[in-house]
Nucleic acid binder design. Structure first.
Lengths: 115, 115
DNA sequence: ACTATATGCATAAGAAACTGATGTATGAAA
DNA sequence: TTTCATACATCAGTTTCTTATGCATATAGT
């Protein structure tokens, strides 16, 4: 996607949600999953992803587990209990944000949406 | 809203869209309109709004017109021709961003959405 | 008289979250 | 041997916000 600056603020939510669905993932896998799910339109850069993962870990929302695969090191991330709670919180924030966005942007809107 | 950091990147779009619907607005009016449309959940702060307006004006997307109302100065903003084009561009960016967000976040999603 | 609130503009320090470049390392393909 | 893919990471710089502050007018409350 040409202008990706809308990601700001939603990257953490994306990470947490993917980890809720996938149990455990490593960084590179996350970038590939997002690219795949969005047909290449959203590309999570490493410079954004890794600091975000480290921060979530520092906040106690993610735990890590290093693993060796084919002479390559992988750092797997999983949700902690706090992380599992936070997913729902972040998701409802995102949902209400999108609703509010629709209220601002859609002049005559029926209360219909679905994130 | 408690965590407003999702706004990042969408403020310009909001401003442009409101001006497309309202022909001309002044800064304070924009903050009030957004607050009203979102039942107080999104509050555009002045520290975010005014720099954003100035930037859009510097980019040639908005034009201004000072007006005196009740001994108070108002600075009205309107879309320029470039601004009118940019609204559509920004809106389709926003729409595809939300679509992509849904693809990432909603596991089994029907291609149904509406921003 | 004083204070708070509303209207209306604006700037500025600091924080947060990015981009884009760079670095290390392994391995396969061209 | 150069590029690409996999896999981690850091860092300078930029953008975009928050929070505080400032100026100015007017009304309402205490």
């Amino acid at each position: 996607m040409s202008n990706n600056n809308l990601i700001k603020g939603s990257l953490q939510t994306i990470i947490l949600k993917l980890l809720e669905e996938n149990e455990r993932m490593y960084g590179y896998e996350i970038t590939q999953r997002v690219k795949e799910l969005t047909a290449g339109e959203i590309k999570i850069t490493e410079g954004a992803l890794y600091p975000a993962l480290h921060k979530l870990e520092a906040e106690g929302l993610l735990s890590t587990e290093i693993q060796q695969v084919d002479n390559r090191v992988r750092k797997y991330y999983s949700l902690t209990k706090d992380g599992q709670k936070e997913v729902h919180s972040k998701m409802s924030e995102l949902q209400s944000f999108v609703e509010n966005l629709q209220r601002i942007i859609n002049p005559g809107l029926k209360p219909d949406f679905s994130l």
